[in-house]
């Protein structure tokens, strides 16, 4: 079982790269057991937002505040990067790695690894080198490696970008299971169908700014801004 999730907020957050703002200034609060989907066109700042919340990307200004002490907050999060990072090891060792860091005993690790390999459909590939997997298999492995620690908060940056329809559904089921078990999920996607299926609430970014935030059903039914409306209709957003 997963402990209750913490909440996180951004206050007056700004990220600059090479002197130009790429995200913010932004104020945002995420709390509750929700499934947050971050939407926005390419370059809107979705990845930057997730990395800032997770703490792998630093703010130029402002603060990220978790409702629990920082050290504890760090320990309860997991992140699946847009381009999966594979350790130069076997699939099995990639899955075991986050647990080894926690010093769990070998038998417990081995049983969790087999369990998760089965859930992500890679049990046949356990002894293959992870860097040799296909794009989709890598994404599945990255997801399994993130979920194996039962994180309270899970960040996913386009986890289904390279997956076929069937794999996408399997992954969605895994994510819904995790959410039901108490994991708070914050995910980006370019698949609006997927956003509709999964989102409880929504963040819409444009040019690094928070354009809309709110309940998913309301956003999809009646987007407040013309930009969001255009985005949902598949038009080019200026």
């Amino acid at each position: 079982m997963v402990e209750p999730y913490p909440s996180v907020s951004l206050k007056d957050a700004l990220v600059k790269r090479r002197g130009k703002p790429i995200l913010g200034p932004i104020d945002l609060a995420l709390s509750g057991t929700g499934f947050t989907i971050v939407l926005g066109p390419n370059g809107a700042g979705k990845t930057t937002l997730l990395k800032v919340l997770h703490g792998v990307e630093r703010l130029s200004k402002g603060v990220v505040a978790w409702s629990v002490p920082d050290a504890q907050a760090r320990q309860m999060q997991a992140y699946v990067f847009q381009s999966p990072i594979m350790l130069r090891r076997s699939v099995r060792q990639n899955l075991a790695y986050p647990l080894q860091l926690l010093g769990e005993d070998k038998a417990a690790i081995a049983s969790k690894v087999t369990d998760w390999a089965r859930r992500i459909g890679l049990e046949e590939a356990l002894d293959r080198p992870a860097p040799r997997l296909s794009g989709g298999e890598r994404q599945k492995l990255a997801l399994g490696r993130a979920l194996i620690r039962s994180p309270q908060v899970l960040f996913l940056d386009e986890p289904c970008a390279n997956l076929d329809g069937r794999s996408t559904r399997e992954i969605e089921a895994l994510l819904q299971d995790a959410q039901a078990a108490g994991t708070r999920i914050i995910m980006t996607t370019h698949d609006l169908g997927q956003a509709r299926r999964l989102a409880s609430d929504l963040v819409f970014l444009l040019h690094g700014r928070l354009h809309e935030q709110g309940e998913a059903s309301a956003f999809f039914a009646t987007p407040r801004t013309s930009e969001a409306k255009a985005f949902l209709e598949g038009d080019i957003v200026e």
């Binding site: 760090r74 790695y97 860091l101």
Partner: peptide
Amino acid sequence: AEYHDLLISLNTSKRQRIATLIWD
């Protein structure tokens, strides 16, 4: 450069990072 984000994300200690890099 390849591992940076992952190792930071997993909240590794400095020793764990060096050990991972040396091993891999």
